[in-house]
Amino acid sequence: MAKDVKPRVKVPKTAAAGEVITIKTLISHKMESGNRKDSNGNRIPRSIINRFTCDFNGQNVIDVEMQPAISTNPFFEFQAKVPESGEFKFTWYDDNGSIYEATRAITVS
């Protein structure tokens, strides 16, 4: 499972100091809800990403707790304030203990 998980993040490369930017994130993950059954009628065990966080230079932007009702390939769009140049860090936490990470640098001009 873990090897076909691919995070994709869209962050502008530059911003003005204090500007509010829009960030879009998508991660490929099947988000098995635990409610579905296979062809033999057995319940397929739950396997989802249960938490997503975004930080900028160590300060939190958004922290999302996710439940099985989030769709396959979880997508999030949110706003962040950029006070200085630095790095956005995105972290996804899988039910199975895996942690997926992505980082994006942004320059304040």
């Binding site: 300060q59 958004i62 999302v64």
Partner: peptide
């Protein structure tokens, strides 16, 4: 959704 100090 929990918003942190840098949420725009």
């Amino acid at each position: 959704f929990n918003f942190g100090p840098l949420a725009g």
